[in-house]
Simulated scan of single mutants.
Amino acid sequence: MTTDMLKSKEALRNLIDAYAYLGDEKKLAEQMRLFTKDAIYKAYMGDFLAADVSGTEQLEKEFTGHVSLVKTYFTLNGQHTVNIDGDTATGVSFSQIKMIRETDGKNILSDYSVKYEDKYVQQNGQWLIKERTGYFIIVETRTLN
């Protein structure tokens, strides 16, 4: 494996981690800079297509609506495998996402186990997310004490 390949793998892992950090901190404008302007984002809850958004302007609106309902996010990234081909790459990553929302004065925890399938491009020396599809495989919701 070449030094350039190792640098690209590290940069792609850092991209995925930055996506999680910025999402947890609700820094959506900064998070949008991780995507190409024409990015595609899809999310499946089981077999149901819950989100299908194109472009960072629409994506930021979608995320802003979601963030307004959430008190706290906590994301833990796991495995991340990439295949790099010049200035493009594909990747699969896994995340554990916890969200706390308030309903009827009670804190409700939603716990998501997510598999992401991504397409990346390198523009001006920086790796960006071109397409991201999230598969919410396990979803658990419960009231916190």
Rank of each mutant, 00 (worst) to 15 (best):
V70F: 08
L15Q: 08
D118W: 08
K61T: 05
L28F: 09
I129K: 09
L22E: 04
D87F: 10
A39G: 09
R13K: 13
E57M: 02
F35L: 07
L6Q: 07
K106L: 02
T75D: 05
I129P: 05
T81I: 10
K26W: 01
N77L: 12
N77T: 13
D118T: 12
W127D: 05
A89Q: 01
N77K: 14
Y44S: 08
H66A: 12
M5C: 07
N107G: 07
N124M: 03
A39W: 00
G105M: 05
Y21C: 11
Y116N: 12
R33I: 00
F48G: 00
K106F: 01
Y120E: 04
V92E: 04
R101T: 10
K27Y: 02
W127L: 05
K27S: 06
E117L: 08
V70W: 04
K119I: 00
A11Y: 01
L15I: 09
M32W: 04
H80S: 15
T133S: 14
Q126G: 02
G65M: 07
T81M: 03
G23R: 13
G46I: 01
F94A: 02
E25F: 10
T133V: 14
Q79R: 10
K130N: 10
Y19E: 08
I108C: 03
V114T: 00
K26R: 13
M5T: 14
K71E: 06
I129Q: 06
G23E: 02
I40E: 11
G86Y: 06
F48H: 12
I108F: 02
D47Y: 09
K37E: 07
E62N: 14
Y116P: 05
L128H: 11
G55T: 08
V82H: 01
R13H: 07
A18C: 02
G23W: 07
V114Y: 01
F74G: 14
R33T: 12
E25K: 15
D52V: 04
E25G: 15
G105T: 08
L12R: 02
V114R: 01
V121H: 09
L69N: 08
A43N: 10
L6W: 00
Q126W: 00
S110L: 02
Q96L: 07
Y44F: 14
F48D: 04
S54D: 04
M99S: 11
Q58G: 02
I84G: 13
L6M: 12
Y120M: 07
T72R: 12
D85L: 13
Q126V: 10
I97F: 06
V114Q: 01
T88Q: 14
G105E: 07
S68L: 05
S113A: 12
E60N: 12
E62S: 13
N124W: 01
Y41I: 03
